[in-house]
């Protein structure tokens, strides 16, 4: 009833109003232009990231950039190897996925299959809220709470080591924990949607054959929701590898091999923390790092499209 009311003023103005064919054409052109804006945006982002990312490659050489482990952009003899930075992003993202995805999927199972309606009605909005919290706040809590705790652990673990460089808790492990928490909402929401989309007949068949509730969930429902869950994981990877502000201060401030108790730099954090004082080739190198990150994201996007096409569903 309410919806019909909202048409009435519009319908009233129909009478006596004559729209010209010119207005019609113009409208179509404007809408087409609006829709093409996304194409234009992606094309120019690609163009400018490539344009500003390639000069350093010619100056420094691709081999030195990708395979050297020495990053000393401000030294007298500057070196621009970003192998450790790339490896840190890969290893850090991988560990965050290993930590966050099981918790995320199990929470999704809880929401979709185990919890009764009332509990789910409280937990689900909470998870949605978690997704809306700005990343700097995760960073703030990371540096204020996690780093000191990590430092205590570090001092205890390496109390007899003479060679360990103490990081004050700002290390790979801290960053991985922050990232794992940050991908949780993405993984939970998309996995839950996937689990709920499984046809009830599959669950009914499993239960009718005598499967217990847990068997039904883990042997029938989850395999049936596989493509949705893979989507959740891939999106989680994208979120983790692109996150910058939350882990810039938490992960430490020097380039090292990605070991748990080392201070490290990710692709994203290298850009954020060095852009302020960089100049010349150093600055161009930061754009090259951006280009590397862009390539990673594009590959992830392609995988995602592949998965979605195979699964025949949208997230």
């Amino acid at each position: 009833m309410k919806a019909e009311k909202s048409i009435l003023p519009g319908a009233g103005s129909l009478i006596g109003k004559k729209s010209g064919a010119a207005a019609e054409r113009a409208a179509q052109i404007v809408f087409t232009a609006c829709a093409s804006f996304a194409i234009l945006a992606v094309a120019s982002i690609t163009l400018y990231l490539v344009l500003s990312g390639t000069p350093a490659i010619f100056q420094v050489g691709l081999k030195e950039i990708l395979f050297s482990t020495v990053w000393a952009p401000t030294a007298a003899q500057p070196r621009y190897g970003i192998l450790y930075v790339i490896l840190t992003s890969v290893v850090g993202t991988g560990l965050a996925i290993l930590l966050g995805v099981p918790v995320g999927i199990l929470t999704a199972v809880f929401l979709a299959e185990v919890a009764d309606e009332r509990v789910a009605a409280v937990v689900k909005p909470a998870v949605e809220l978690l997704a809306g919290i700005p990343s700097v706040i995760y960073g703030l809590l990371g540096i204020y709470l996690l780093n000191p705790a990590m430092y205590r652990l570090e001092r205890w673990l390496f109390r007899d080591s003479a060679t360990h460089q103490f990081t004050g808790g700002a290390n790979l492990l801290s960053a991985v924990i922050v990232l794992a928490i940050m991908i949780l909402p993405t993984v939970i929401n998309i996995s839950e949607t996937a689990i709920r989309a499984v046809p009830p007949s599959i669950k009914a068949a499993s239960l009718a054959l005598g499967g217990s509730r847990i068997q039904t969930i883990f042997k029938s429902i989850l395999p049936a929701a596989k493509s949705g869950i893979v989507t959740a994981v891939v999106l989680g990877v994208g979120r983790a590898i692109g996150e910058a502000m939350a882990i810039t201060l938490v992960s430490g401030s020097s380039v090292n091999a990605p070991l748990p108790f080392r201070s490290v730099r990710f692709l994203t954090t290298a850009i954020v923390s060095e852009m302020g004082y960089s100049s010349g080739t150093h600055r161009q190198m930061l754009f090259t790092i951006g280009l590397v990150l862009f390539v990673f994201i594009m590959v992830i996007n392609l995988i995602l499209t592949r998965v979605l096409k195979k699964g025949g569903q949208t997230p």
Binding site: A41, I45, G242, A244, T268, F287, I297
Partner: peptide, 13 residues
């Protein structure tokens, strides 16, 4: 694609 690009890259662009 736009929704998947990380914000640091938007910043650089």
């Amino acid at each position: 694609t736009l929704s998947g690009i990380p914000s640091v890259l938007f910043g650089l662009f």
